[in-house]
Design a binder for these strands. Structure first.
Lengths: 349, 349
DNA sequence: TCCAGATATGCAACCGATTGCAGAGATTTT
DNA sequence: AAAATCTCTGCAATCGGTTGCATATCTGGA
């Protein structure tokens, strides 16, 4: 716009060169401190704002970080992103957020877009386990750092911030077994996704350990949304030999199934115990409240951002830390407490 | 980086000028279609990517939209932003999202940051009703369009995408009165915020209309989080003359209070009816499920983005549409159904 | 054959901040 | 007094794409 003030305007007004103004505003030690003061005062008075594009063009850096997620309207994602935004903003970086909406094509396009936007770094939770691993090469090949979180590529050597999903699922399954459950249904999502595959494997491991034969029939697949829950609940209730527990891979579907069960007159956890995953608010507010795994969304987002930012600002290198595994507690609540007194602590929160 | 391909490289390789390459890649009709084909093929083969900064610097436009929200980890916000991201992305725009975390100072700083990032437009939900109205001037004065949604400045002539909060609150209060409730508590948030003030006023209007005297004691203030709910529930139960209904300004606190009430052995809606606002998933999954207002988050986000994008792409002007009021239905559910047969439709969803 | 009009391409000046290098002036050293 | 050193500032090129204007080539018509 015509009203835009540049360093040239400031330079002209003070009878200096643009170079001097540029250096002064960057607090370059070569500039006399009196000159700096004058320049700063003039810049302020004239309403100067630096043009990022000119600066980026010249410096070949953008102070912008890209974030790729499957979708951002889940409690986990929005909390994680909230943490990232705070960290990035405190460090002077902006966030560009894109969602793939479960479409691998969109995911690839998104990666290209961020690449073209010349982000300085990237944080990503994958939509699927497709070729995307390869597509990140266009970034990593040019030295643009990528940190994965939540949904990470398996077998890659890229930095990842995750929890031990298998171990958490193992813990929750063992807890159910400890409560006397024998036929435990596991409701999972798309097992191409890292987290669901891991949770399934933890579930299997626990069964194996307890000497309970694994039954493929007891593993149900869905998109884990509220909408598909009634159907899932039906299928569980119609099984030969009714299951005595449901371990769902997220809290939303655990809650929705629990509601469906109760509408059929089942008592929870007496007739069927229900456990979820994530510690979404809903797991605390349902009655009975739902046993779950505390998935530390904020901490995961904050950690991913911290590692990336430290790398970008040269404070530390990412290669040193390939994988960060955060702790995820089992929260035992009413929905699985079948034994009156047991040795598990009842979690209040 | 050294490996970066520019239009000059392409031009040199094909024996053309950079101007021609630039025009060809932009599909300028002045360029011969054969030449275009050759240039596109070469660009593809050489791995060319356009440098946004050079382009932005020259064009003085960024294809970037800023989004300012109080915090992004609520069901409403993440859903609205999700819609915005989709619209913007389809139109070739990127989103830069910042959150104010309830701090007016951070909100002002955020606006400045986006201003300095030279966003082409802005969508904003305000943190408070402070001076921020004024701070947007730095944008609007320079012709950068701003669309407000959800939390909008009152009395401003800026474009807004909202629902009629007062009318919705009126409807829900009338419904409670219709169910025989006489002492209706309203739990509200910071009344400096547009939506809460409006909801409170709708509540008052309904009381007035029904001839029930307004009692200041029955209006409780909180931050509307899950954590403060137990305290609120206590205060309600300890009132002289126990209230027979609670109308909370969001679903989270309605659900949390409902849980607290039940833990004290009250029956819902028999002893006390409970209504919320937003139609968060939790309102559907609680047992009893909770009467609420369907706050169309996705639609609000999509509408805000559509108006802004149409303005930016010159399809229509924002000035023509100062205020868009979307419809928000009352969803009557179990938590307020005190009369066995009534004329209200029971909403399934 | 000559010229008007289209069509296609090139020239060169931007946009605004950054930075290597040079150099003017002031200060200290020999 | 001459030389060496230090401080500070300016010159001018650079980043890469865009665009107004000029120019070259070709087409068809008089």
């Amino acid at each position: 716009m015509s009203g835009e003030v540049t360093i040239y305007d400031i330079a002209e007004k003070l009878g200096l060169s643009a170079a001097t103004v540029s250096r002064a505003l960057k607090d370059n030690p070569a500039i006399n401190s009196n000159t700096k003061k004058k320049i700063r005062a003039a810049a302020e008075a004239m309403g100067y704002r630096s043009n990022r594009f000119a600066s980026n063009l010249r410096k070949r850096t953008t102070n912008t970080i890209g974030v790729v997620v499957p979708r951002l309207n889940s409690n986990f994602m929005s909390t994680a992103i909230s943490a990232m935004e705070k960290m990035a903003s405190d460090a002077g970086y902006s966030l560009i957020i894109v969602q793939s909406l479960e479409s691998p094509a969109k995911e690839i396009a998104n990666i290209r877009t961020l690449f073209n936007s010349r982000v300085d770094g990237l944080m990503a939770a994958l939509s699927s386990e497709q070729e995307t691993d390869i597509d990140f090469r266009i970034l990593t090949d040019r030295g643009i750092p990528v940190v994965f979180f939540d949904q990470v590529p398996s077998g890659s050597s890229q930095p990842c911030i995750i929890i031990d999903n298998a171990q958490a699922a193992h813990a929750i399954t063992m807890h159910l077994i400890g409560q006397g459950c024998k036929r435990i249904v596991h409701l999972t999502g798309n097992v191409k996704r890292f987290v669901y595959r891991e949770r399934l494997s933890g579930y299997k491991m626990a069964l194996l350990e307890a000497g309970i034969p694994f039954d493929e029939e007891l593993v149900l697949h869905s998109d884990l949304t509220e909408l598909s829950a009634p159907d899932i609940a039906n299928r569980i209730l119609e099984m030969d030999g009714r299951p005595d527990a449901l371990f769902a891979a997220n809290d939303m579907s655990a809650a929705a199934c629990l509601t469906a069960f109760r509408e059929r007159g089942l008592s929870i956890p007496g007739d069927i115990a229900v456990a979820g995953f994530n510690n979404d608010p809903i797991s605390r507010l349902m009655q009975p409240n739902i046993t779950t795994i505390n998935y530390p969304a904020y901490q995961i987002g904050a950690t991913a951002a911290t590692y990336l930012l430290n790398h970008l600002t040269g404070k530390s290198s990412l290669q040193a830390t390939n994988k960060v595994i955060l702790h995820a507690d089992l929260l035992v609540r009413e929905s699985t407490m079948r034994l009156p007194h047991n040795d598990q602590l009842r979690s209040v929160f």
